[in-house]
Write a protein that binds this DNA or RNA. Structure first.
Lengths: 340, 340
DNA sequence: TTGAAAGCGCTAACAT
DNA sequence: ATGTTAGCGCTTTCAA
């Protein structure tokens, strides 16, 4: 049998409200005696509040919506794990959805989650997020009236709270590392035109080149969608571009794609050129030589995101701050000194 | 402003109940005219039902609890993605939680989800799931009164619905493959004693050995917890066990651990021995030679699991069927013919 | 073809 | 220190 407050009230011979006050630990009235008795009965009956009823009357659900583009990607998986954990620590549950990298699905899920009564939303956007009409998007987000934070993207044109790492700096760090190792002809695999985080990385790469007196060469520019597959696609032309001695990739996964292609074609990618990726993927260490990579400080991003979201929720006030965390270059063995 | 059915009723000049009937597409009474009008107004006002209210009165939430041991493991990530997708297709949302491979946390989450009013639960158990007191566990599950399915494990001692793949057969397939390639000294890295799925794989390995007239050798038996790290730990002793010419690992990840150790110690794992793992990890193809592996048919397991769960929900009847799907050996390039 | 009203389980303002 | 009561927004039975 499922016990309700009413049952407990009856059993204890008190009123409903007294039970409610006690079980919610409201520090008011109620004698210690009855307090004890009620708690006692609640424990014996394994009383569990009906959360639908609580939601309905308190207008909160203690559920947070989390939307990620691809849970299969270790970067987002790790993010999800930490978000889930931190939310749980604060008494919130995670209503999860994978948008499969579709902006349309993203909107659909967003809508759905709002109607499920989530208290707030964490959106890790799909690649194509910024291809949408910002006006409309802004309107949709505003209309939800829910605390919202965009994670892993910076939306200059959107009045929303966002948390991201410094993409420009990440790319700059990596580019400089390659240059410091004597590389002059550095290929860059960028995300497509308006992909989330792509332009910033491109600028970091390009400006670091210039800062070091190197001229940018369009022939060294490649494009992918961060997936293993897209790295694989680009592999042959990069590997056969004989001038390049190093490649900076916008994701470790694309580097995996290159390595895969190389393996299949009897060429050793690590001997062919130096490589740096983004994401600090856990699998970076299983390739023949562990990959040097840009770490985005997932934990930091997550705690900032969750912190900002919960703050909005408790303060009942929506803010639009942009938070940026600093990335870190993880040096491993995929970068070699080049002799000139 | 947030519109309610009451607002719509007022605007349409009809009663609340009429609105409810129309918006829920109940095929009863109500003239087409008023039906249209109501739908019209609902659309204009972007009406969204308050799901807490629906839950409260209908005693269903359209939320399903999903508990996984480690979302960071690609195997579970892929499972999660498919589960989420299939649930969504049926109008259910996913209340997600990562148990971090802790049986205690698992119980805690389970409890929590029930009190959140989920309509059913999918539990992908932690490694140590079967170390628990089955009596107590059975009681806890029964007490929830919720449709429940255990995914990726078989619980002979538990009266619950479960969906798993045939671990025995998977191990047998892989062992036979190695034997067919001339291997006689096949190491096996098993999960710890009572780990989920571990004993069945061990039996598959062992019985296949015997079936082929090979004697089982305790020195060829190793232990791990499926992680990269645990493979790494075991690596040196396996690699230095000069008799072994092939290794069957209970997870691809542990093979990655071995490969990592080998890379670090200037030995080529692929030249050292043949290898087969379990999980068909997406990263199997980025190692120097793509790994042969046992594929558990995640999609199949997921559709069986979700199907069984939803069936219980709509039939309002809890069942305890055990479903088993057939694994498949994915042949790639980590197994070589050995000359005798 | 439609409306009124009770009820889902809990919260909170108001009484006593 | 404790009880009464009016909602929260929706579903559903019973009347009309």
């Amino acid at each position: 049998m499922k016990y309700t407050m009413k049952d407990i009230a009856q059993a204890a011979g008190v009123s409903l409200s007294t039970v409610s006050l006690v079980l919610n630990d409201r520090p008011v009235r109620v004698s210690d005696k009855t307090r004890k008795r009620i708690k006692q009965i609640a424990a014996e009956t394994h009383y569990q509040p009906n959360s639908a009823a609580v939601s309905l009357s308190r207008h909160v659900s203690y559920n947070i919506g989390l939307i990620v583009p691809d849970i299969t990607n270790p970067f987002f998986a790790q993010m999800t794990r930490e978000i889930n954990e931190q939310l749980a620590q604060h008494g919130y549950s995670t209503l999860f959805a994978d948008s499969n990298n579709s902006a349309e699905k993203e909107r659909h899920i967003l809508h759905n989650m709002v109607s499920r009564g989530v208290d707030g939303i964490l959106l890790v956007p799909s690649n194509e997020f910024f291809y949408q009409d910002m006006e409309k998007l802004q309107k949709q987000i505003d209309e939800t009236g829910k605390p919202f934070v965009l994670v892993n993207a910076t939306a200059d044109k959107l009045r929303v709270c966002s948390v991201n790492f410094d993409n420009f700096q990440g790319a700059a760090l990596a580019t400089q590392e390659l240059i410091d190792h004597g590389h002059r002809n550095i290929a860059f695999i960028q995300g497509k035109a308006q992909y989330v985080n792509a332009p910033e990385r491109y600028q970091g790469y390009r400006q670091t080149l210039e800062k070091n007196g190197l001229t940018f060469h369009p022939d060294f520019l490649y494009e992918g969608d961060y997936s293993i597959e897209s790295g694989y696609q680009a592999a042959s032309s990069i590997i056969n571009n004989n001038e390049v001695t190093a490649v900076l990739s916008s994701s470790d996964m694309m580097l995996f794609g290159i390595i895969k292609w190389a393996n299949e074609h009897q060429v050793n990618a690590f001997n062919r050129f130096s490589m740096i990726g983004f994401d600090n993927d856990p699998y970076d260490v299983i390739t023949q030589y562990p990959l040097t990579t840009v770490d985005q400080q997932i934990s930091k991003m997550v705690s900032e995101s969750v912190g900002a979201l919960l703050k909005m929720i408790v303060n009942k006030k929506i803010t639009h701050q942009k938070l940026i965390v600093t990335p870190e270059l993880i040096r491993r063995q995929s970068v070699r000194m080049i002799k000139k």
